[in-house]
C-alpha cells in the first residue's frame, strides 16, 4: 500500500534533515506504527506521504500513486486524521462532515452514523466552535473516515483524550482493521502501538532504527523481569530483577530464602523499555 525508498526531507537549505534517507513498506491491510520521540520526524514523514509536504527526495508510492506525479484523485482512497483538530468552527458537526463528503468522488459514509460512532450523537446540530477539545478531536477523527479510506493516516489519534474516549477510538481502529483498512499510525504511546500495530518502526533523529512486529521485538530485546517486594529490617523493599542475569537470579534466590516476601510478579518488557534499550533514549 505504501512503499518508501530513500526518503529525505529538509525544512531548510543548510543540510539539516528532518527525515534522512528512510525506507519501508506497508502491506495492504496492515496497521503500521510509527514510533519516536518528539522531533524525530514522524509528522514530517506523514506530511510527505499525505502530500501536505512536497516530496523532495526519494521514491514514494501511496495507494498505488507515485508521489512524483501529483494526482489529487488519490485522496479518494485516503483518510487523514490530524494531531491538532481542524474543523470549521462556524459549521455544525453535521455540516462539517456533509461538506467534506461532497468533496469526494466515491461513495461516502453517513455523517449521522459517523457522529454516533465517535459518541457525538445529539450534538449534530451544534457548531463545532462550541465543542470541547476532545469533541473537536473526535470530529476530526470521524471526518477522516468519511470516504471509507483504504489507507488511513492517524497522527496521535488518542493523545490527550480521556481514557474512555481513547478506548472507543482504539475499538474503532480495530474494527477498521478487521474490514481490511491499511493504517499508518503515528504515536508516542507504546501501549497503543503494542495493542494495535502489526509492525512498528522506531524513528529517531529522522532515521529508522528498526522495523519489526511488537512480538518479535519483545522476544529479541525483552527479558522477563521479576518484581519482588519484601521486608528487610522491618522496612518494605522493592526490587526488579532480570531473569536472564545470573547475578539477579542468585540475588532473587537469596531474597526468597532470607526475607518475608510481600508480593512477587513476573513482568514482560514493554515496547517503551525496548525502545530505550534500542535507541538509548526515552519516548518523551
Amino acid at each position: 500500500m505504501i512503499t518508501v525508498r530513500n526518503l529525505s526531507h529538509s525544512y531548510s537549505k543548510d543540510g539539516k534533515m528532518a527525515v534522512n534517507d528512510i525506507s519501508f513498506e506497508i502491506e495492504r491491510g496492515e496497521t503500521f506504527g510509527f514510533l519516536g520521540p518528539s522531533g524525530a520526524g514522524k509528522s514530517t514523514t506523514q506530511g510527505v506521504l499525505t502530500g501536505l509536504l512536497k516530496l523532495q527526495k526519494g521514491e514514494v508510492t501511496v495507494a498505488g500513486y507515485d508521489l512524483n506525479k501529483v494526482r489529487n484523485e488519490r485522496f479518494n482512497k485516503i483518510g487523514v486524521s490530524f494531531e491538532q483538530s481542524n474543523v470549521y468552527s462556524k459549521l455544525t458537526a453535521l455540516e462539517n462532515l456533509k461538506y467534506f463528503a461532497d468533496l469526494f468522488d466515491v461513495p461516502t459514509r453517513d455523517p449521522h452514523e459517523l457522529l454516533a460512532l465517535v459518541g457525538l450523537e445529539g450534538r449534530e446540530k451544534d457548531r463545532a466552535g462550541s465543542f470541547s477539545k476532545g469533541m473537536k478531536h473526535r470530529l476530526t477523527f470521524a471526518r477522516s473516515m468519511i470516504n471509507r479510506p483504504e489507507l488511513w493516516f492517524l497522527d496521535e489519534p488518542t493523545t490527550g483524550l480521556d481514557p474512555a474516549i481513547a478506548a472507543t477510538i482504539k475499538d474503532i481502529i480495530k474494527e477498521e482493521k478487521a474490514k481490511g483498512t491499511t493504517t499508518f499510525l503515528t504515536t508516542h504511546n507504546m501501549y497503543i502501538a503494542d495493542e494495535l500495530c502489526d509492525r512498528v518502526a522506531f524513528i529517531i533523529d529522522g532515521e529508522i532504527r528498526l522495523i519489526d512486529t511488537p512480538r518479535n521485538l519483545k522476544q529479541r530485546f525483552g527479558q522477563k523481569l521479576i518484581e519482588v517486594e519484601y521486608i528487610a529490617d522491618s522496612r518494605p523493599v522493592k526490587e526488579t530483577l532480570k531473569t536472564i542475569d545470573d547475578g539477579d537470579r542468585r540475588k532473587l534466590a537469596g531474597i526468597v530464602t532470607s526475607y518475608d516476601i510481600v508480593t512477587m510478579h513476573s513482568k514482560e518488557a514493554t515496547l517503551e523499555e525496548i525502545f530505550i534499550q534500542v535507541t538509548g533514549r526515552g519516548l518523551l
Binding site: 499525505t50 502530500g51 501536505l52 491538532q84 474543523v87 467534506f100 468533496l103
Partner: peptide
Amino acid sequence: DQGVIRALAVTPAT
C-alpha cells in the same frame, strides 16, 4: 487559524 486548509489539502478538492 483553524487549520482547515490542511484538511482540504488531503481531499480531491484543489
